[in-house]
Structure formats: structure tokens, C-alpha cells
């Protein structure tokens, strides 16, 4: 049941962002902002009161409710970047390129948060900061792909080829992610991560709280990406305006 909500939120946000990137005007930001805020508040309340304190790890286990929800926006971000890359290559419409840039930037923020909260949780529970386990390691590699993408975008800034090349790398990078997951599974099969936080395996209160967190974070991702998209549109309008005005 919970995954239905999460899936719905992911589809809704992705659809909204794609629609937003195509159109001229920017509507719905304040609505999305309020929705995200409401979801965050609900999630925070649930973490504090609804979710029980886990017997084995104690209170620190509640990092679970902030660590895991970051995963979806991190992978959703790069997924949208790849989708936008394909869109750009087919239509050469700059709005796709702006969506790719915005979702990559916000996606890398969430990806970094996974890598930050992971060790903070691992230290008290397993005694060392970095835990070479399947999910965390694949997320680290995803973070490197993000880094490479943003560096390429930075180094090739401006020319048309920049947009084409970043679109291509977004596609190739996303195609590599499942292989990275398999390969890390082979190399580091032993996973210290809780066997599989399949929400079904968790007691109801826990999985509901986690679900709320996921929905909230997806909405936050949507809101931040929409705002970043608006900034990107202003940038390109400014770039174009600077040419129109009589330059020397």
C-alpha cells in the first residue's frame, strides 16, 4: 500500500517537472512548496511519535527514516537527466537541457545526503564510518557519475556541443547504473545493510513512517527542481537578451 503512494508521488512529480520544463510560464510552485512542507511536517511528526523505538539499535535507528528516503530522489534525479538527455538529442529543444541540468543538480544534493547520513548511522551501530556494503557503495559510484556529469557540463559550458555531450553522458551514465549495482553485489556481496528494508518486512508503524518520508522527499525534490528550472530559464532568457541588445 505504501509503495503505491510513493510510486504515485514519483510519477506525479516527474510528469509535473517535464510539463513545467516545456511551458513558458511557471505555475504551481507555491502549491508544490506547501504540499512538500505539509508532507515534511507529517513525516517529522510520524518519526517522533508514530514510529516505535527499535529495541536493538535504540533511538539511533531513527536515522533510517532520513537516510533511506533520500535514495529515491537521488536515482530519480539522474533518471530525469537521462530522459531529458534523450529528449534533447531528439528535438534539440533547450528546455530539455535545462531540465537535465536542474534534476542533476538537485539529484546530486540528495545523493550526497545519502553518503553523509549512511556513515553517521553506521558509526554508532557497526563501529566504523564507512561500510563497504552494496547499497552504500553503488550510491557512491552513482555520486561519481553525477560528479563527472556536472564537471563535463561545467567544462564544456556554453557551446551547443556542451548540451549534446552532457545529454549523451547522462544517457550512458544511467545505462551503467544497473551494471554498477550488479558488479558491487558481486564484489561486496556481504551486505551489512539491514537485509532489505522491504517495507513489508517492517512493522506497520515503521513502514508507514518510511513511506511518508519517501513521499515527502520526492515532493521536496520536485519543488527544488522546479525552482532550479525557473532559475535556468531566467539564465537563458538573460543570455539571449544580452545578444539582442546592440552589442558593439
Amino acid at each position: 500500500m505504501v509503495s503505491l503512494f510513493v510510486g504515485g508521488a514519483v510519477l506525479a512529480v516527474s510528469g509535473w517537472l517535464v510539463w513545467l520544463s516545456r511551458g513558458r510560464e511557471h505555475r504551481g510552485h507555491s502549491v508544490a512548496g506547501l504540499l512538500a512542507l505539509a508532507a515534511l511536517l507529517l513525516w517529522a511528526w510520524m518519526v517522533a511519535f508514530h514510529a516505535p523505538v527499535e529495541r536493538a539499535q535504540g533511538l539511533v535507528q531513527k536515522i533510517f527514516y532520513v537516510h533511506v528516503p533520500c535514495v529515491i530522489p537521488a536515482y530519480l534525479g539522474f533518471g530525469l537527466t537521462a530522459l531529458a538527455g534523450i529528449g534533447f538529442l531528439r528535438s534539440r529543444n533547450e528546455s530539455w537541457d535545462r531540465l537535465a541540468a536542474a534534476s542533476a543538480e538537485v539529484g546530486v544534493v540528495f545523493c550526497s545526503l545519502i553518503l553523509a547520513t549512511g556513515p553517521i548511522w553506521a558509526k554508532p551501530v557497526w563501529g566504523h564510518w564507512w561500510v563497504w556494503d552494496l547499497r552504500l557503495t553503488s550510491t557512491l559510484v552513482l555520486w561519481f557519475i553525477y560528479l563527472a556529469y556536472l564537471l563535463l557540463r561545467g567544462f564544456a559550458f556554453g557551446s551547443d556541443t556542451a548540451r549534446t555531450f552532457t545529454a549523451v553522458y547522462g544517457i550512458v551514465g544511467t545505462a551503467a547504473i544497473p551494471f554498477v549495482y550488479f558488479a558491487v553485489d558481486l564484489a561486496r556481496g556481504d551486505t551489512l545493510h539491514p537485509s532489505n528494508p522491504a517495507r513489508e518486512g517492517l512493522p506497520a508503524a515503521m513502514s508507514e513512517t518510511l513511506g511518508a518520508g519517501m513521499v515527502a522527499f520526492v515532493l521536496v525534490f520536485g519543488f527544488l527542481t522546479a525552482r532550479r528550472l525557473a532559475a535556468a530559464r531566467l539564465e537563458s532568457d538573460l543570455l539571449e537578451a544580452s545578444e539582442r541588445s546592440p552589442v558593439g
Binding site: 559550458f157 556554453g158 557551446s159 551547443d160 543570455l239 544580452s242 545578444e243
Partner: peptide, 8 residues
């Protein structure tokens, strides 16, 4: 039209 970044 052909644009190279800011250069038209």
C-alpha cells in the same frame, strides 16, 4: 540562427 553560448 547559430549560437555559441553568448556569441550569436
Amino acid at each position: 540562427e547559430k549560437r555559441y553560448g553568448a556569441l550569436l
